[in-house]
Design a protein around this nucleic acid. Structure first.
Lengths: 216, 216, 216, 216
DNA sequence: CAATAACCGAGACGGTACGTCTTGTCTTGCG
DNA sequence: CGCAAGACAAGACGTACCGTCTCGGTTATTG
């Protein structure tokens, strides 16, 4: 869990006011992370997140149950309900965690090649275990449940898009609306291929897509 | 239910070998509908399909239960299980039914404008109640459940795509691979906008998209 | 379950209007018992009652759980909740069942010795497994829970007392108030000894008590 | 809490070896009360006892929870568990406390009328809030739980009976076995009426009972 | 023109998981 | 150390649906 996201730490009570699940610099040293207010058990938190990830891969989203997670994590059911509302919430925390470490832009000196690199990274993230499984499951479930859709968008996708548009702008030196359009032109086929066509996002395909839209 | 689809009529027993849920000509005269072998109650079948549609809109996919459908349809639970394996199966039948009447290409004399018309029709289908709700729900659920994915692809999406590629070819007089690429370039943004961005597919947007890819 | 008691048969829905759980002749031939309205499973009913009895003796009232009964009876929890409101209800049915077969007065020709015999029978019933355990548990729980008290009195104790007073009257040929007073004088020490002093109700003690109050 | 009872003061650790919860002279000056060794908070102790009493009357025995008592007393749960094993233990302390002040024999110069007075006092104690509620609840729970039965008898009822038999002897100048039999003859109907018949122990009834067994 | 077989409604059944509740233990600061 | 606060593992509670299984009561051919 990125220290800038308090999602899992201080749960539903204080209402999600977090505006940037995807921090530009998720890794900034926040000594304040030691402001680890509550007496929450870190061991239990991690055991739950890992168990959920494992069981999602093993049994699929439908076969993922709170009772199963609790049993696999060696944790009481109530400990889960104390900190998460639902299995969707748990997976969301996993998504934020994984995105924080796996969905990053190359660091500072902006370079047009950064976009290519990032799109490749995104395709790998969406298309591979376990993070991609989680994102696909949450996107799928968001079609079925408005609360999941709300959480996924305001808590993750919106921030991700804003960040990516900004990076694209600075990387290519183009205006915001152009950056957004370019990003959509690149991401739409990836999502389409993964969610609708269910075909693999192999690097060759991604390269072809990039060649179409961004000059090498 | 299109008479060329035996999905809902003679169910899981004879194993789904239906290859063209989306018939090119779903409306072929079927006096043969009297080949209606079994003593299945048409009233019950329709009551179930309608109840499922209504309850999907009312309570969402998760809140849709077999018991609820049975109660709303005034039908015994066993009557549902006799003809459908799951609520996904019921929704699938509804999808095929709705697609048969709402996702058609203009009839015969091929015309380049047909593609524009069809894409508009598709956007309207995906974006509006209740058929779009059903398709979105099934696409969402397909991310969570491989059996749903299998059913949706081999039973609907693959046939739809094959048909649409063929129509695009004849409408524009282009080779198959070009037709497929063009179709993807048009559909990917629509799916992306509907499933990921959750924005409306208004005609203005669709027109803009078409202007980008197909000469007016 | 005595056929004159509909307690377990037609459960909480039709509201307990049964006025004579303790029928004078619980065994009256009622071929009509086959007027067994619902399709309730007799096997499940008996399995639950027996399991409850066994587990009460084994683990005590507090250690008796619905889940445990369901597991021991090889029955789904919901099957128990369908027909009984609580474990108290199950025990009550057992009590009525056991009382019907074990708490009977000698048959017709009234004889002063009948009272002696019945009091001995009562002492044995109250003091021995498993029926006595059930009655003691329900009497104990009635001190803690008004609903149990209500059920036990209006559904069992009142009818028992009325029946016993009537029998005492005809057996000894005395007026009702005298019969009631005599019965109280005999039962109070038995209950006191069983519930408060927790001493055994051996036949010698009962004989002594009888000698004190009824001429041999 | 009587100072001669260390029940609540030094709890389960030193194992209850107290033989006379009901001291003949509960009020004997025990300067040793300053043996108030530990740093136990008297305020917390009293808050717990009072809260338990209040909540027993308000919600009944079953609705009485340790957490509820802790909350109502403004005390941490652990503080309760530090000093009492269970809610039964807390109620027991309350019983001893109340009995110490409400269930006393007239003082010294022995007089035959003392028995009448004491029986009236006992009936009032058993039949009225809150002390009677506690005793009835504990008697009821003793039917369900052997540990409660053990505690109630060895910790309270046995000593009470011994004391009462002794007082009866000296008050009426009769041998011990006669005193015990007389006491049983008086108490059995009271317990029977309170626990089984659930009728009020009004003074008129008690007078009638006394007239039956002890010459005025 | 019965009989016989499938369908139908109703709903009980053995199960699984839900989300809530309480228990009794443990840990973390404060005074 | 006692204490308030409260997280924790454990597990029962009562509810909702699941998918299977009778039960009688219609139809609707078919022998």
């Amino acid at each position: 869990m990125s220290p800038t996201s308090n999602h899992g730490r201080s749960p539903h009570r204080p209402a999600r006011e977090d505006a940037s699940a995807i921090a530009a610099q998720p890794r900034t040293a926040t000594g304040s992370s030691s402001a680890n207010s509550s007496r929450r058990s870190e061991a239990a938190r991690l055991a739950v997140l890992n168990a959920a990830d494992d069981l999602l891969v093993e049994h699929g989203f439908e076969g993922l149950t709170i009772e199963g997670i609790a049993a696999a994590a060696g944790v009481a059911k109530q400990t889960i309900y104390r900190w998460w509302k639902s299995k969707v919430d748990i997976l969301f925390d996993n998504l934020v965690l994984d995105a924080g470490s796996g969905l990053v832009w190359p660091t500072d000196p902006a370079d047009p090649a950064d976009l290519r690199a990032y799109i490749h990274r995104f395709a790998a993230f969406l298309g591979t275990e376990p993070a991609g499984h989680v994102l696909q499951a949450l996107l799928g479930h968001a079609q079925l449940d408005p609360r999941t859709a709300e959480l996924l968008h305001t808590g993750f996708l919106d921030a991700l898009r804003a960040r990516d548009v900004a990076h694209t702008r600075t990387a290519l030196g183009i205006p915001e609306d152009e950056a957004a359009a370019l990003l959509d032109a690149l991401l739409a086929p990836l999502y389409h291929r993964a969610l609708v066509l269910r075909l693999p996002l192999d690097p060759a395909y991604v390269d072809g897509l990039l060649d179409q839209h961004v000059p090498r």
